[in-house]
Design a protein around this nucleic acid. Structure first.
Lengths: 193, 193
DNA sequence: TATTCTGAATAGACCGGTCGGTCTAGGAGA
DNA sequence: TCTCCTAGACCGACCGGTCTATTCAGAATA
């Protein structure tokens, strides 16, 4: 039951961290929600911080699944693949109750004070943008983007604006800002192809 | 000294809330930083939440100053006025140590759990977008934007993307994402004027 | 196969410290 | 004197984390 318990904690951590953030999530609440005793928690995790970092790793596993599902889809042209990734993310947010992106939430909450989390989350973002940038480079080569477009900068732009839209979507519990942002971005990026 | 004490608390609250967020900011730390005894705090504020809400009000006073300084500047064309507002904000972020926007930070941290803050912060955002939208409408009338452009939607887009860039800027302690976002947005919005 | 051993995992009482918040007393200006 | 404000001791609750006892599956031994 060892792996099972750890999995259970990480799984609950995904939803509880997304909703409560880091500081408002008590270990005790997590244990009550999962029925796991405290001793088990500190057997599997060195600290609350260690736990949260592992939850982020798990979150990134899901992100990578999304990236793979969208960016490897050979039935789509490159730009549509990139957009598909964010549409898949939007669907995940919907399933989670329109609470937006955990990376954005934890990044805002913790990066003012905790450099470990700031670096961790920035690393996650930069991994994602790297994948998106590769996809956008393909789009550029296929003429979907202007020949002088900068895929890395465009990818960062896309992700950053997405995170802003995700915040607004979290405030309003409404996915509309996400779609509006994608419409605007892809219209703008495509226009001078 | 009554007003003075309250002012002092709000002033310290501005910087401490921006850096620490809500849950990581202890009343005690605030009192030690200001030299104010606990009794005074609870004389002026009903609770920690009440205090934070008033800090947000104070933050919005500064935002309104920025809005006024930028959007009323008759030496600039409307679109340049809008951009100026965000450039003023960027300078404020710089002074505060590149910690981004307090509304975005508190919005992400608290909106999952606390509807009072979610509503409050969404209200702040919608007030700002309303001003920006008026300015963009003027731009549309003057031919700086396409005749069929939707100023309200464009204003929301602008603010949301800005908040995303502010998060990234906070993570990296670097204003570059803010400027990149403005460049992209205004190039895109202007292109088909 | 039966028995012993062992280390991982479970279980929760318990710890000091800190949390937000209350209370009462004193001081200052009207 | 009366009202506002300062002042800080004090409160119970809860925080993250430690500690020790116990359980239990499976390897080792015979």
């Amino acid at each position: 039951m060892a792996l099972n318990t750890k999995e259970q904690l990480l799984e609950a951590g995904l939803s509880m961290l997304l909703k409560h953030g880091y500081n408002d999530l008590g270990i005790q609440a997590l244990l009550e929600a999962t029925g796991v005793p405290k001793g088990s928690f500190y057997h599997h995790f060195g600290s609350k911080e260690d736990f949260a970092l592992q939850v982020i790793d798990r979150y990134m596993q899901e992100v990578h699944q999304g990236l793979e599902a969208a960016l490897q889809d050979q039935t789509l042209r490159p730009l549509e693949r990139a957009r598909r990734f964010f549409e898949l993310s939007r669907e995940k947010y919907r399933q989670d109750g329109h609470l937006g992106c955990m990376l954005g939430a934890l990044g805002q909450e913790l990066s003012g004070v905790n450099p470990t989390f700031a670096r961790k989350i920035e690393d996650c973002f930069s991994v994602v943008t790297r994948h998106i940038a590769e996809c956008l480079e393909e789009a550029r080569q296929q003429g979907q983007l202007a020949p002088d477009a900068d895929p890395v900068e465009l990818a960062n732009l896309l992700l950053n604006c997405w995170e802003g839209a995700a915040l607004r979507s979290r405030l309003l519990r409404d996915p509309a800002p996400l779609d509006r942002m994608l419409d605007f971005y892809f219209a703008a990026a495509t226009r001078d192809a």
